[in-house]
Computed example of a mutant assay.
Amino acid sequence: MPQHASVGRGSITVDHLPPDLTRELYRHMRTARDLDTEAVALQRQGVFPAYVSVRGQEAAQVGSAAALDPARDFVFPTYREMAAAQAYGVDMVGYMATHRALWHGGLYDVAASRFGAVNAVVGGPVPHAVGWAVGERLRGDDGVALAYFGDGASSEGDVHEAMNFAGVYGAPVVFFCQNNQWALSVPNERQVAGGSIAARAEGYGMPGVLVDGNDAGAVHHATAEAVAHARRGEGPTLIEALTYRVEPHSTSDDAGRYRDDSEAERWRRRDPVALLREALTAAGHADEAALAEIDGQALEEARRIRDGVSTAHEPDGSELFTHVFREHTEELTRQRRTWKEEVEL
C-alpha cells in the first residue's frame, strides 16, 4: 500500500522546512500564478492559439521541481508544467514561446536546461524518462529523471511498460503523477481502477507515496526523499500528488458540459498559493511586508515574460523542415519545395 502523507483539506505547515526554501517556493508559485493569468489573456487576445492553465497545481509542480538538482537531474514534462519550468530555472520566454507555436518545442535549450520539450502525447514523457535514467546509470553518473504525467495518462500502456521496466532494472526515476481528478472530461472513478494510482507501485516493486498536492512543503519533502532514494541506487518511486484542475482542461474546453462548478469552487477555496502564504506567516518565515515585496517581484517577472513572448521574433518558415529527420528524405524535400513556391507567389 502507498505511504500516505497528510492529504487533508485544512491548513498546511512549513515548520519542517528552512525559511529561505519556503520563501523561494512561494516566489515561484506566485510568479507562475501571475504568468498563468497573463497567458490566458494572451490566448484571448489571439497571441496564443491555445493554452492549458496550471492554476491550482502550482504546489505540486513547484514543490517537486525544486527538490531536484538542475545540474545533474532531468525533467520530462507534459504540456501543463509551466510552474515546474519556472521553478527549475528554464528560460521562460523561450518556454512560453511554445504556446505561440513559434518553433519545435519552444525557443529554449532543452539539453542545457535539462527540462524536456512540451510533450502533448498522453503518457509520452514517462518512457522517455526511463530511457534517459537507464542511460545515466550506464554512463556511471548519478542523475535522476522525473517524469510528470496525469491521472488520465496512468491508464496508458506506455506508462505501465515504463514503470515495469524501471522496477525491473532499478532505474533512477521519480514517477510524479499530478492527480487533478479529471482526464479531460473523464473523472477518476471512471478510469482509475482501485481508486489509487500510488497503490499500483507495489506491483512494480517500488515505493508508492500519496501526498497532498496542494501542500508545497509536503510535495517537496516527498520528492526529495524519492530523489535521494534513486540517487542511492535504490530504484524508482511513484508519487501521486492529489490536487485539482480548477480551470477547464484548456482554453478550448468547456468544463461546464461535464462537471459541476461547485466542486471546483470547493478546491478554489483551498488554493495552494494562499495556503503557502498563510503557512509562511504562521511559521514566522515571512511577514506581510516581505510577502508583498515577493508579490510585486513575481508580478513584474510575469509581465516581463509576457512582453518577451509577445514580441519574440518569428523564425523563418523554412525551419519547419529542419530537425525532422537526420537526413532529408525525398518527400520532405518535395514538401519544402512546394512550401517555397507558395510563399514566393
Rank of each mutant, 00 (worst) to 15 (best):
P127K: 07
N119Y: 04
V118P: 00
V130E: 01
D91F: 09
V118E: 00
M96S: 07
G124W: 03
N119R: 04
V122C: 02
W103R: 15
F115V: 05
G105H: 13
A111E: 15
V134T: 10
G105S: 14
H128K: 11
A129P: 07
V110A: 13
V126Y: 02
A129N: 06
W132E: 00
L107W: 05
S113H: 04
L102M: 15
G116V: 00
N119F: 02
R100C: 14
P127W: 09
G106V: 08
V134Y: 11
M92W: 07
A120R: 10
A129S: 09
T98K: 00
T98E: 14
A117P: 04
A112E: 13
M96R: 03
V126M: 03
P127A: 08
A101D: 13
H104G: 06
V126N: 00
A120K: 08
F115R: 02
L107I: 06
F115M: 07
V93A: 12
W132T: 00
V118T: 09
H99R: 15
V121M: 13
A97N: 09
V90Y: 04
G123V: 02
G131T: 06
G116W: 01
Y108D: 07
M92Y: 07
V90R: 02
A129G: 09
F115T: 01
R114H: 12
G116Q: 01
